[in-house]
Design a protein around this nucleic acid. Structure first.
Lengths: 224, 224
DNA sequence: CAAAAATAAAAGTAATACTATCATATTTTA
DNA sequence: TAAAATATGATAGTATTACTTTTATTTTTG
């Protein structure tokens, strides 16, 4: 698994970047350190100038890779959803029973990314935290429809559709499979956030995980 | 109902503002027009300078009411959740059957705010759109824990807890009432957003409403 | 080794997010 | 009703952001 993951390259829509950060050492440092920095100080406070200082490069050099920090966030989150989709496919592929498959899919999507199975320069534990705290900012904009047309959200959409398909496989008659799928994916991020900042608004904690909650939710809604 | 609503004053935490916008004509113009403007151009592009031009007042005068636009967003969204709570209490109060009560509560929380039942200077149809598009930005910040301690999210929390209580009333044994409650409230905003921008990720449309979907979801999860 | 490409350094611009000062208008109250 | 207090408006100023441009330097490659 490790070996395969090391070879995996998530192919990001090339309109998101000006120059592919995977194509150079500087590009990789930009990605690696932007993840660390956004996680540390938050997306609002993060600037290309600060990142330049951190990686001892120049602001103007970073602008040759990404138009602006919004595009960089789109890049990072696209990578995350692509990575998660790979995890999902890898883990569910061999399961023939559709109920077991769905169960596993929910687990993959809602679990806490804990062990640092990080390969190369991307720390997906930190990246998962960024997705929890910043992802919705990437689509809650006035430009969402244009950017959607450009395909900037295609990994996310593909994941929602994949889960939707798995739900349908278990119960063809369930009338809201894509709403349920999008609720799980977005809701999982939200429950993880609440657990850390608004514990009174969730039952999730060290013992009850979002996986437990969403598994129960899904299997009560669809017929088994 | 109209009459009562006209008298309702949502009492916002006074640390959110510097000077109470309800206390003056200028303050009310700030609120009224900031809602219109944020809805029009989005929160990112919105500035106090632009608002000043629109209401023919001065940037510096607006700063005497709100420290910054983040606090203004907290004010507007607090007002919205307070208003929605009022709607909820008003509509469910007289229902004695706890299942019917929950059903009505879900309806109030997940429905599209359509008719402009606006009173005074606040247009809650536009405000609902702002909440759909911008609310998560108000808490997805590095300051969320401090601001939560200051009580800036108390209306939202109270609504989640109220719905949680109603779920418990119907089924005391259900193990995830607060997660379900927060999923409904956050999820309803999300489904409304998807319906407008990512229709392939939701089953909600003109005929299937978020209310239909969430009502089904809830009553399949809890025992009746 | 020369040419091309990538990166770094520095400077410049327009806008943002404020703060401060002072003038003027309006309201309050003595 | 005059004086005082308060609210608002106009103007200017500051630091930072979000870039763009130009030029110099370093690295890569043919």
């Amino acid at each position: 698994m490790k070996y395969i993951l090391q070879d995996l390259k998530v192919k990001i829509n090339d309109k998101i970047y000006i120059k592919d950060p995977e194509s150079s050492a500087l590009g990789k440092r930009i990605i690696e350190n932007s993840i660390i920095m956004i996680q540390e100080i938050g997306f609002e406070s993060f600037t290309f100038k600060k990142l330049g200082e951190k990686i001892k490069s120049n602001e103007s050099s970073i602008y040759r890779y990404f138009e602006n920090k919004h595009k960089l966030l789109l890049y990072l989150t696209s990578w995350y959803w692509g990575w998660l989709e790979y995890q999902l496919v890898f883990a569910t592929n061999s399961i023939s029973n559709s109920e077991d498959k769905l169960r596993k899919a929910i687990e993959i999507i809602t679990r806490t990314i804990e062990e640092d199975s990080s390969f190369s320069h991307i720390n997906e534990v930190l990246l998962n935290k960024i997705v929890i705290n910043e992802y919705s900012k990437s689509y809650l904009t006035k430009e969402v429809d244009e950017e959607n047309k450009e395909g900037y959200f295609s990994f996310y959409k593909r994941l929602v559709i994949r889960l939707n398909d798995m739900i349908k496989e278990v119960d063809t008659t369930y009338p809201y499979p894509s709403s349920l799928s999008s609720t799980i994916i977005e809701g999982a991020l939200h429950q993880h956030f609440l657990k850390d900042h608004f514990p009174s608004l969730t039952n999730c904690n060290e013992t009850i995980t979002p996986t437990t909650y969403f598994t129960d939710l899904v299997f009560n809604s669809i017929k088994k």
